[in-house]
Amino acid sequence: MIKQFDETQLKNRMNSRVRNNRIWKFIFFLSTLFGLFVLAILMIRVVMDGISFLHMDFLTGRLSTDPDRAGIMGALLGTVWVVLVVIPVTLIVGVGTAIYLELYAKRGKFKSFIETNISNLAGVPSIVYGLLGLTVFVRMMDFGNVVLAGGLTLSLLVLPILIVSAQEALRAVPGHLAEASYGMGATKWQTIRRVILPAALPSILTGSILSLSRAIGETAPLTVLGIPALLIPFPEGLFDTFTALPMQIYYWTLDSSLVAEYANLAGATIIVLLALLFLLNSVAIFIRNKFQHRY
C-alpha cells in the first residue's frame, strides 16, 4: 500500500494538535474560574458583613429601627405566604398550559403563536410584571398590596419559565411509552395521567422549584406593587399586607447611609435568603437524581 501521509509531517501536526487542545481546555477552565471567583468575593463580603448579626433573635424578631433589636420574622413569614400562593398557582396553570400545548393542541399557527408569545414573556423585565400586578391585582381587583396580589404577580412572572420547562419535560417522555398506552385503548387523558405525567413529573418538579426560587428572590415587581418594609403586623392570611426577604434587603441597603449597621442587617438577610434558595435548589437536585427514570 502506498502511504498518502508523510510520517514526519504527521508527527509534527500531531504535536500541535495536542497542544491546541490543551490551550483551549485552559481557556475554558479560566472562564469557569472567573464566575466562581466573582461569586466567592460576593459571598465573602456578605458573610463578613452579616454573620455577626445573624443569630436566633434576628430570625425570630420583629422589625425595628434599632439595629440591635431588628429581626426578619415578618419578612420570612411574608416570603412563606407568597410561596404558598405561587406554588399552587404556577403548578396548576403552568402544567395545565404545558399539557395543552404539548399534548392536545394541534400543530399550527395558533399553537406556534402562543408558544412564541410565551417565550417572549419569559424575557420581559420583571418590573413590567410589577406594573401588570399593580394595575390588575392591586387596583382593578382592589386587593391592595397584600399577599395574594404579590403572590399572583410573582406567579405571572415565573409562569412562562415554568411552562417552557414543563413542555420540555413532557416532550422528553419517549413516544413509545405513550404508544403502548394508546395501543391498549387508553384515551389521551388516561395516557397523560398514568404514563406521561408520572414519567415527566421529576423534571416538572425540578423546573417548578427552580422557578420558585426565582420568584422568592425577585424585588423589582414587589417595589412597584408598593410592598412596604415597615413595622407591620405579621401576615396571617392571603389578604394581609406583608413584606418579603428581598424587600427587606432592598430597604436596609437603601437606608444604610443613615444607619451604618443596616448594611450588616442586609448582609445577614442575604445569607438567610441564599440559604433558603440553596435549600430549594438542593431539593430540586435531589428530586432529579432520586426519581429520574431510565427509559
Binding site: 419517549p174 411509552l177 403502548a180 398506552s181 395501543g183 385503548g185 384515551t187 414519567a199 427514570h293 427509559y295
Partner: peptide, 18 residues
C-alpha cells in the same frame, strides 16, 4: 379506543412502562 381494545399491538422495540 374501542377498536384498540379488540386489536392489541406489539411494537418493534420492547416498550414496557417504567
Amino acid at each position: 379506543e374501542d377498536l384498540r381494545t379488540k386489536v392489541g399491538m406489539v411494537f418493534q422495540k420492547p416498550n414496557p412502562f417504567p
